[in-house]
């Protein structure tokens, strides 16, 4: 009984707020809400969004953003974390700077990316002054662009430090002994990394990457600031339908939110499976 009592306050809040909110979203997406007289659940909101032009493109764009941001952040974070293991002048400053990234909200970072990478931004100006381009139009379109480069730049900037910090914590726990043992048995540095260190880092790397994927997939304010006019990220589309003054669009917004939750939830389940295999689940 004791563990459940200790968990009760947390579970009460989680189920009461999070569970109820998800439940309501689900109910409304099936157009079921007895309070306003809707007692016959149906799937019309889902058929409407799936057949609407542009919805699948939006989902595809969001998947592209999430996969790209997660993989790029993970690769950069791995390199950074490994580099930060070595002692060098300014290592403390660099570690501090990585933590700075955590404290900067997404909205702020997104505006910064806009000022840097837009076609009239800081880099375009430098390119112009260096004689590389003859005007803003000649600079590649990196923000508000159809390939979402600007959105991914922001996520890589923002989430790379997050994954790095998690990896640094893991590295600290793992310690240098395993690698050293492998090296003393004749493994090359690459072999020691790939066959000894990387598998040990994998659970935290996967968990952090999955979190980044899920966040980038469902975020709203960043694609709103940095995205192109079409297609829109699926969260932007959902919020737009939700704030549509046509009430008929509400269940469709809820259905989109459910689709987002299902895809992100799929990541959670896949992650739990992977971690379970790695022996993390049932301590």
């Amino acid at each position: 009984m004791r563990p459940y009592l200790m968990l009760a306050p947390l579970l009460f809040v989680l189920c009461g707020l999070f569970g109820a909110a998800l439940g309501l979203t689900l109910m409304r997406s099936f157009r079921y809400l007895p309070a306003v007289g809707l007692t016959e659940p149906d799937l019309s909101a889902y058929t409407a969004i799936l057949t609407a032009p542009g919805f699948l493109e939006s989902v595809a764009l969001s998947v592209w953003i999430a996969v790209g941001s997660a993989l790029l952040s993970a690769a950069l974070a791995l390199a950074t974390a490994l580099a930060l293991r070595q002692a060098f002048v300014g290592r403390g400053i660099l570690t501090g700077l990585i933590q700075v990234g955590l404290a900067v909200p997404h909205v702020v970072g997104a505006v910064g990316i806009l000022y840097l990478f837009s076609q009239s931004g800081a880099f375009a100006r430098m390119a112009f002054q260096a004689g590389l381009i003859d005007g803003p139009g000649a600079f590649p379109a990196l923000t508000n662009d159809p390939y979402a480069v600007g959105i991914m730049l922001l996520y890589v900037w923002k989430e790379m430090p997050f994954i790095t910090l998690i990896l640094l914590a893991s590295l600290q726990r793992i310690g240098p002994d395993h690698e050293a043992a492998a090296r003393s048995l004749g493994a090359t540095p690459w072999q020691a990394f790939a066959h000894v260190l990387l598998p040990m880092l994998m659970p935290s790397l996967l968990a952090a990457t999955a979190l980044v994927f899920a966040f980038a997939f469902g975020a709203y304010e960043v694609p709103l600031l940095l995205g192109a006019h079409a297609p829109e990220a699926v969260a932007v589309l959902a919020w737009r339908s939700h704030t549509d003054v046509d009430l008929a669009a509400r269940p469709e917004a809820m259905a989109m939110a459910v689709v987002i939750a299902v895809i992100a939830g799929g990541m959670l389940v896949a992650l739990a499976q992977l971690l379970g295999k790695a022996g993390w689940g049932g301590r």
């Binding site: 909110a21 439940g23 309501l24 899920a214 959902a238 917004a253 939110a257 992100a264 990541m267």
Partner: peptide, 10 residues
């Protein structure tokens, strides 16, 4: 893991 938008609407 579940994005804020999935929670916010409900």
């Amino acid at each position: 893991v579940l994005p804020a938008i999935a929670v916010a609407l409900g």
